[in-house]
């Protein structure tokens, strides 16, 4: 069965003017491939500038790719904004970090959940659309009396629920979530994480879940890809990745998570900042910060390949699996 979403060698470059007038290319996303099956969750983690949000925009066709191909439900995704793109966009929706920015402050929230139905000409008649929107209100745990409220009258958690209701009202098969709970407080974040899991169980859509927070991604994802400077450096099931990381960057990222009740003895402190993506180091892009880099890491870019337990890693120091096997997420 073909996957719901398949991304092949995706890349996006930006020309950047450097000091001194020269122009350089910033490789925001540089050869990313993955697949996502219907109803599953792929988490993408990484630090600022790793390209995770750019990847999300490319998948949705909000940005044209410089290279590579995206197929969603068997159709190619292009950033053409034509009729075909709009039809696809009905089936792939987005949830952002800041619900207040995503909502129209001058419209009651209920109307904003009805609006996508009107735009796409779904559900004949205002009454039917209203009923559908109210059903979604119920699904995301909002009281019907909040339907007429304005965004500023709701709490952060309630606003994110409205955003979810609006995304789900069109019955998408893919929800791209970019840091959807980062702006929420701990107690409310837990409510929204559980809600995302319940909604997936109920409606069966797939999530592309982008976050800097490893703990949240571990909670929600079936598969996790770790990005560094535009590329996936390791990919596999969350338990494998977070309990026994193989790529030195994943290892440092996991050890950097401050966790109550875990000693700080084993923490790996990476030296310096991530390099400027415009001056991406040659060889393995991580080698200048890597505590285990060898000469080969400066010369040769490691490919993402299957390693011992079936996960993917892009590191010269991780032994390959004996016989390469085709990969499916």
């Amino acid at each position: 069965m073909s996957p719901l979403l398949s991304v092949d060698d995706l890349a996006r470059q930006y020309p950047v003017a450097m000091s001194g007038g020269q122009r350089r290319l910033l490789h925001a996303v540089d050869g990313v491939s993955f697949t996502l099956a219907a109803g599953r969750t792929l988490g993408i983690v990484g630090e600022s500038g790793c390209g995770k949000s750019t990847a999300a925009k490319l998948v949705l066709g909000l940005l044209p790719a410089t290279r590579g191909a995206i197929a969603f439900e068997g159709e190619p995704v292009t950033a053409t904004r034509d009729r075909a793109w709009r039809a696809l966009r009905r089936r792939m929706q987005m949830v952002h970090q800041d619900p207040l920015a995503a909502l129209d402050r001058r419209l009651p929230v209920g109307e904003q959940v009805v609006e996508p139905l009107t735009i796409h000409g779904l559900e004949a008649g205002q009454d039917a659309r209203q009923q559908k929107a109210l059903a979604l209100f119920e699904a995301v745990g909002l009281r019907p009396d909040l339907f007429q409220r304005y965004p500023h009258e709701l709490s952060g958690g309630q606003r994110q629920r409205v955003v979810l209701a609006r995304a789900l009202v069109l019955g998408p098969s893919l929800l791209v979530c970019d840091e959807p709970i980062s702006a929420l407080d701990v107690s409310v974040a837990a409510q929204v994480i559980n809600l995302l899991q319940d909604l997936q169980a109920r409606f069966g859509m797939a999530y592309l879940f982008i976050s800097h927070d490893l703990k949240v991604v571990r909670q929600i994802a079936d598969e996790v890809a770790v990005m560094y400077l535009g590329r996936i450096v390791e990919q596999g099931p969350p338990e494998a990745l977070f309990h026994a990381p193989t790529h030195p960057y994943t290892e440092a990222l996991v050890s950097a998570v401050p966790t109550p009740l875990r000693g700080t003895r084993e923490r790996i402190i990476l030296q310096s900042d991530p390099p400027n993506p415009v001056e991406r180091p040659g060889g393995c892009a991580f080698h200048p910060r890597c505590p285990r880099a060898i000469a080969r890491c400066r010369e040769e870019t490691p490919a993402l390949r299957q390693v011992a337990d079936g996960r993917l890693a892009a590191c010269h120091l991780v032994p390959s699996m004996a016989a390469p096997v085709p990969v499916a997420a």
Binding site: A190, N194, R218, T259
Partner: peptide
């Protein structure tokens, strides 16, 4: 309410 990296993955209690 906190998700964790260690231990079994259990549903959060908000």
């Amino acid at each position: 309410a906190l998700p964790t990296l260690d231990g079994p993955r259990v549903r959060l209690t908000p």
